[in-house]
Nucleic acid binder design. Structure first.
Lengths: 206, 206, 206, 206
DNA sequence: AACTAATCGAGACGGTACGTCCCGTCTTAGA
DNA sequence: TCTAAGACGGGACGTACCGTCTCGATTAGTT
């Protein structure tokens, strides 16, 4: 889905990179303001000053378009925060993730996840392009924390990641509670209580 | 399909409770087979052998209808499992929840949660009628487990509930991993490691 | 194409005769003002205060719709003029036809004939529903004129009809000359010179 | 519309006359096989192995292109047939015209006439470039026939021409009857009966 | 031989209309 | 009075074609 490096620009491809950006920008603005379902492809095309075919030439449907808009939006910010100790990086990453979800990205992620429930192709793309990289980052951190002696070696990394991300997505989608600092703090603390090695845990608690 | 006796049948009332059941059944069958978005109200009405007006007289839209279908489907089974000790009931409830999600209910819950992302009214209904009762049940169990001395008194019940349900919904919606016995076991064990009182934990592990 | 007598009004048919009239009226107004090609189905539907599906439910495309609009417009006026002698009725019919072509009907007929060149189905409908009845009327008159002794018995009725209608349609479509009284008079006179029986012709010339 | 003599051929001009022919040939083939409306400019360009711009550089739209294709197709054959007596040339010209209409030219003429109904510019071009020259030729013949004493001096030449061409175009466009030898014979005979001078008519009938 | 400028094939582009689909409401005849 | 059937207004969808614009490659006359 538009991952080619495209240096030679051979004929038969979309010519104007400008159109691509205009479309993504219009998508971002419209969808994060009015919501996914409330925005039509015509509105996006019109908002980008572009014909509908120009949109459909690049994305097969609204979901794929919003997907790219999301990735481009937070693409540069994907970098995990730096910190000396792995667990500190994990804690900061939770904070970062939460901050994303409170902004327009939150609306986009909710929309995409919703749409993915009835669109298998989107579901796979969402998993591969949004979820997987972030999980991989977290798992790397967790593994490093084990190396650093802060987490028990017998930890199940997949389940541990689910325990961190699961509750955040749950609140994002269901709205049973807000995703604020206190929530993250409690989540993190209780996560540590479950997984911290006896030796290291007292050094880590924030 | 209209075998109920319903003798008095005075004019001016919905004639048949049978229609209600036929509609819910058709909804259940169609939506759990083909999915929420792929099924139109026309198909549901036709499948129930009923006019569309008869459907819309009882439910304002597809989401509300599917909501009722879900609640009726698992209504009788909502009862939390009985067990002597609270933590055992909690463990059994996790199992039950997972089993629901593997059947047609899983599709319904996913559909409704998806739809709720762009339908505030549905979101509230889903929260109030589906999520809240189950959370209340879990919280009652957790509180009882504290009373029984198996969980630490300082536990944050809301966050603890999120830690149990969050990962399950996460896997249901995202499909990053299956919801099987091993997953539940690991989830439960790590939950306990975080929250069990020092005294009680060794007695509880399954 | 809407030829059924439709008395019982069984379910599954367009219900409102009012919508039909609104659509035909909007079609008539818009197409005779702006022209066939310049008017879209959306405009017609909007002009009739009707959804597009309501139009497409009754007519398969714009051409069929305009066809019906034409027939309804001049339907009541189709009656051939009365006159004692057949040739007088023929002369009056020429006048009538010309007057139609100078009004909105002219635009409609031109549009339909144009469209029929690339739409075989329309071509057949146009021939059967517009051309054929009028030709039949003329041929009946010509035959009567033979009986009355005003035209030679050996006349080829089809070719004679072509000689009357052909030049009129030719001018309508090509615009090489106007269709006015003088043209009709010359056309009629020269037609008579070719076909009148020696005895009768001097009595008929206008 | 492509009337320049183009001798110097300085750079920046259409390089190849070959492209022009390829386009006209593709137009002719495609349009006479599939019809005007069914063929898009993209197909014509592709069929000629040429970019769309190369087409639009030479013709402003499809109609103008087909117009030129028609004129080039029958251009060389436009010459009126030779015969000693004017009426014989007229008769032969009818035959020639009919033969054109039975070949691909018939489709082209029908298409252009159709298109001209909603394209004033094309209508004028068609009249000036296709209709007018042929009418002028016929009128010259008729005038000569008057001089030769075969037609009455008081004949209205315009109307007479309409009487000859009108029925042929009528059958071409409406399809109420075929344009065959018998039709032309009857048309010609009845035309003569109307217009022949008393003296000359018995000498002319074929 | 190198330069240069317009044309070339290919096809992306903004725009308009098409004909289909579904939603939630309304209408009809019949039970 | 309510039902089954389905027509209705509205609006989004994804496609096709128009006539214009852009791209890098080509080519033919000039230097």
């Amino acid at each position: 889905m538009d991952t080619s490096p495209n240096p030679p620009l051979k004929p038969g491809r979309p010519r104007s990179e400008a159109a691509r950006h205009a479309i993504l920008r219009a998508t971002l603005d419209l969808v994060s303001e009015k919501g996914f379902r409330a925005i039509s492809m015509d509105q996006i095309a019109a908002g980008a000053g572009v014909g509908k075919m120009t949109v459909y030439r690049r994305w097969p449907n609204k979901a794929a378009l919003v997907m790219d808009a999301l990735l481009q939006l937070i693409g540069p910010e994907t970098a995990f925060p730096a910190a000396e100790r792995a667990l500190h990086r994990l804690r900061a990453q939770l904070e970062l993730q939460a901050r994303f979800f409170l902004g327009p990205s939150g609306t986009l992620v909710r929309s995409l996840l919703a749409e993915a429930q009835s669109d298998e192709e989107l579901a796979q793309a969402f998993l591969a392009r949004w979820i997987a990289p972030r999980r991989a980052g977290v798992i790397a951190i967790l593994r490093q924390a084990v190396v650093e002696g802060d987490l028990r070696p017998e930890i199940d990394l997949e389940v541990a990641t689910d325990q961190l991300y699961g509750p955040i997505y749950y609140r994002l989608l269901i709205g049973s509670g807000v995703i604020d600092g206190a929530f993250l703090e409690a989540l993190y603390r209780q996560f540590l209580q479950g997984h911290a090695s006896v030796v290291g845990s007292h050094k880590i608690g924030r």
